[in-house]
Design a protein around this nucleic acid. Structure first.
Lengths: 245, 245
DNA sequence: ATTCATCTATCGAACGTTCGTCCGATATTG
DNA sequence: CAATATCGGACGAACGTTCGATAGATGAAT
């Protein structure tokens, strides 16, 4: 296939996923407003969600570039167009802002991942879909994924503990699928959790090193296929004559 | 093998590597003093190197926990036992401190990696050694590796550009070995750079998620073997009868 | 051996800036 | 006109950085 055609197909696949998965900045901010409405003193939902989206968008953009700790609320005010005082109508403190983004991001990501995986039956298909969904979702919500990864270690103890738990839950989705495949003989017998951890590391590279992959002409859909192939080869049942290693 | 025995062997391997590779905090700080002596106003080398070691050690510890931006020089003074003014005998500004640690860390890591790889001849042996050396070195210098990874994006443009270049150079070490193996038929034909990138992602997981691996009882030497197996299976030449994919 | 002058490494108070946060004033809306 | 949403200046705390003071070591002169 000509590269240009492959790129177009990859873009199509991404667009279709975005539509089906139903994730967007607006949707996520509506969820934040619904759940943390107490912290938001603005009553009008339309206004509140729109401004929350600008605030979250700007926070992710600035924090991705220079880190949340180095982002000042004056940076945030400038980029959102709101004033310093105006910002405080949407969160109680800078610390609460990072906590809200963390919690809502974790929840949505895990939801989408589970929903996508559950549309398939066989272990092979479920593993491929988990990989594909993770890459495409992290492409759509890249700043959000980077923020969750980079800022988790700077949270308070309780919040950090929960972030770690949520991340291991995502890993366990992969491990469970691998164990299913081992039970029905489609995957070889190896430490499922360790295999899941390695797959996850490769999946995270997609959004953490986005610049590099982009420079190399890699697409999200293409990367997903490469990781699927890695999983396939790593987990392929060992032929009898090769057991003597 | 009983786990306790395996753990002991793993610890032995790590100790042997530490001795052979000849890397240590003191050695690295001696290199910093030799190269950035202009910024250090302290003449006595023994004193200077000892205090540099305390400063670098404390910087890495604090930055790993809450990020370099959130580390104040008062934090650093408390942990090193030096005063605010005393710190400034060892660097000209907080920004210079992060830049020095970055540059010296990058240099030493790449040196050790190349030296270890060049002790072997065949592509298989060189790849296995590159993987082993990366895991063991990142185990010894874990705070340093984490610092390089997490704080690179907060540097100035010029410094960041160089950090990215150095990281891709490390990746190219792996890619070159894979190409050698493809040329002599010991590895299958696939995108060598993409394969190197995936391996590197898995290698980075070892130090970025150190807590998780530790909790699961994984050792550095054991992790290295797991990654070697991943590389072996992913790069194994495809048997004739399976080509019809 | 003692003294004194010099040099070195370290100290910690102080400076100007910027930070997160608050709150009375103002603009906008139904 | 009342309610709501936003504004921007002000506040104390904490920041990176500077600099004159100081304690200890060194070495030459007495």
């Amino acid at each position: 296939m000509v590269p240009a055609v492959a790129n177009r197909r990859a873009a199509d696949e991404l667009r279709a996923f975005r539509r089906d998965a139903g994730v967007s900045m607006t949707e996520l901010c509506r969820a934040i407003y619904a759940e943390h409405g107490d912290s938001v003193s603005v009553q009008n939902e339309t206004i509140a969600v729109a401004n929350l989206a600008r605030i979250v968008d700007a926070t992710l953009a600035i924090a991705n570039r220079k880190g949340f700790a180095a982002m000042s609320l004056r940076d945030l005010a400038r980029r959102t167009g709101l004033s310093l005082g105006g910002l405080y109508a949407y969160f109680q403190s800078k610390d609460e802002l990072v906590a809200v983004i963390q919690r809502q991001g974790q929840r949505q990501i895990e939801q989408v991942l589970r929903r996508q995986v559950d549309q398939h039956v066989t272990a092979r298909a479920r593993l491929d879909e988990a990989i594909r969904a993770h890459v495409l979702l992290s492409e759509i919500l890249r700043p959000w994924f980077v923020f969750l990864y980079m800022e988790a270690r700077h949270l308070g103890q309780a919040e950090r503990r929960q972030a770690v738990a949520m991340e291991e839950a995502t890993e366990e989705i992969f491990a469970a699928i691998i164990r299913e495949g081992q039970a029905d003989g489609s995957f070889r017998d190896t430490d499922a959790l360790a295999a899941a951890a390695m797959l996850k590391a490769v999946l995270q590279d997609w959004y953490l090193k986005h610049g590099k992959h982009g420079r190399r002409g890699q697409t999200a859909a293409g990367y997903a296929r490469a990781v699927q192939e890695l999983a396939t080869r790593y987990l392929a049942p060992t032929p009898m004559e090769e057991i003597t290693v």
